[in-house]
Amino acid sequence: MNLVSQITKTMLHGAAEMVVAGHRCVCDPSGAMYLEDDRILVVSDLHFEKGSSFARRGMLLPPYDTANTLAALGRVIARYNPASVISLGDSFHDGQAAARLPEQYASALGQLMAGREWIWITGNHDPEHPADLPGETFTELAFGNLVFRHEPSKKPCSGEIAGHLHPAAKVVRRGQAVQRRCFVSDQTRMIMPAFGAYTGGMNILSRPFHGLFDAQAIMAYMLGSKRVYPMTAKTLYI
């Protein structure tokens, strides 16, 4: 049985491995995904400067979200040392966020980018290339059997790796509900969890996810603090 081989393979660092359109994908508990064979690290929905974006509108959220997101990104890059990084859209919370990036964060980001290929996929929050930052910008990008874009297509789409929806899954036991961000996949496509510190999650059983996946094969890979927990559809709640 295919699912079994997927479920049982828990790797180093608590990551889980799965296959999407023939590519081996390592799902890291941080919410990043690593294509080991090609040394490509993918992160989605970083939402840098979300805090200051809210502050502009009068909600003075703690201004440490970018620092947290960068630190998490730094840890996962150090872990896998990827040759390429793909940021799958909504990397910045608004059009001016990149320009607003405080100097120390801009330089920290620069250090992470140094020595590797860096690809910005545009998202609805950041339709342009981020101001003054290196890297290349695409609206979508094909690689092997895979295609990387921010918003998932409405129809079944083999090999698509997308973000945008901030997937999360909920399980219930002994009257307690636990909701966590998750990867969601049916082996033909995948939607990645949001990586940013201030990004929450939307239940994958809710309407925006309807029709995107093969209901028989859908799996949620819930992010725990130290490992990824693969869950089948029947364990999930809304």
Binding site: M1, G175, V178, G224, K226, Y229, M231
Partner: peptide, 26 residues
């Protein structure tokens, strides 16, 4: 309910149960 029970433990329990179940079926 037992309040404050570690959420992480719950996740682990369900995931492990699932794994066992799947292995039994294969």
């Amino acid at each position: 309910r037992v309040p404050g029970e570690a959420h992480e433990t719950l996740l682990e329990e369900i995931a492990d149960e699932l794994t066992r179940e799947m292995s039994d079926h294969s």
